[in-house]
Simulated scan of single mutants.
Amino acid sequence: MQQPVGITFRFAALQDAETIRAIEFEASLRFMSVGMAGIADALPMHLALVERKIAAQEIMLALDVEGTCAGFVMFEPQPARIYIQELDVLTSHAGRRIGAALIGQVEQLARSCERMQLTLSTYREVPWNAPYYRRLGFREIAETELDAALIARRDAHIARGLDESKRVFMRRDLA
């Protein structure tokens, strides 16, 4: 995949934690436009969580030519796959394929550690969620295909108050 012009990537460092939280908050505001105020009003991730993910090298940043963080992807390595937990790009940088390139960075990591699948959970009808991931080669995972780890993730979503009837698990095989 061709990289967006002027964008570089690196793992997040501790000094990036508040920037990551600010990008997440800004990205969540888009949900107001699709009537999902509960998500738009949600607080960003806890700082301690972001710092743990940074220490584990499980957040990749996209930086523009000025060195400004334009977006990030947070992920979790699992046996045989990497689960994409969150992907956010600043509205000011939207439409430049930065999100797709961040997914590409995770794909490279997955291949380097011989994990041949990317998975995620997202909203089925939100245009920048499931429809976007379909364009990137992800497909829906049928309920009958969910393994114990994905069922546990779904249960955690429900415990947080997410409406799982509006969500879908997706995967992309990296054969």
Score class of each variant (00 low, 15 high):
Gln117Ile: 04
Arg139Ile: 12
His46Met: 07
Ala149Asn: 11
Arg153Leu: 06
Arg10Val: 00
Arg172Gly: 04
Gly71Glu: 10
Val65Ser: 09
Ala17Phe: 01
Leu150Arg: 08
Ala55Ser: 09
Ala101Arg: 03
Phe25Arg: 15
Ala40Asn: 06
Phe75Gly: 03
Asp88Val: 03
Glu26Lys: 05
Tyr132Met: 15
Asp163Ser: 07
Thr68Gln: 15
Arg111Thr: 04
Gln117Met: 12
Val34Lys: 06
Gly95Lys: 04
Ser121Asn: 14
Glu26Asp: 13
Glu125Arg: 08
Gly71Tyr: 09
Thr122Lys: 06
Thr68Pro: 00
Cys113Tyr: 01
Ala40Tyr: 00
Val106Glu: 08
Ile39Lys: 02
Arg153Gln: 11
Met36Phe: 05
Met74Thr: 08
Met60Glu: 10
Asp64Thr: 07
Arg171Gly: 00
Arg171Trp: 01
Thr19Val: 11
Ile23Cys: 05
Val168Ser: 05
Ile7Ala: 03
Glu107Pro: 02
Val65Thr: 14
Leu49His: 08
Val89Asp: 06
Val5Ala: 14
Ile98Met: 07
Glu76Ala: 08
His157Gly: 10
Met36Ser: 06
Ala152Leu: 08
His46Gln: 12
Ala159Glu: 14
Leu150Gly: 03
Val89Arg: 06
Ala101Trp: 02
Asp88Thr: 07
Gly99Pro: 02
Pro127Thr: 13
Phe9Ala: 09
Pro131Cys: 09
Pro131Arg: 13
Val34Ser: 09
Gln108Gly: 05
Ile158Phe: 00
Gly67Glu: 03
Glu114His: 13
Leu87Ile: 13
Ser112Gln: 13
Phe138Thr: 13
Gly67Ile: 04
Ile59His: 02
Met1His: 09
Ala159His: 06
Ser121Asp: 12
Leu102Phe: 00
Ile23His: 02
Glu107Ala: 09
Ile39Glu: 11
Leu49Gln: 11
Asp155Gly: 05
Ala13Glu: 12
Arg30Asp: 08
Met32Asn: 12
Glu58Cys: 10
Val5Phe: 02
Glu66Ser: 14
Ala101Leu: 05
Tyr83Lys: 15
Ile98His: 06
Ala142Glu: 13
Leu146His: 09
Lys166Ala: 10
Pro131Ile: 09
Pro77Asp: 14
Ala101Phe: 01
Arg30Pro: 00
Asp163Thr: 02
Glu86Leu: 04
Ala22Trp: 01
Phe138Gly: 03
Arg167Leu: 03
Ile59Asp: 03
Ser112Gly: 04
Arg10Ser: 06
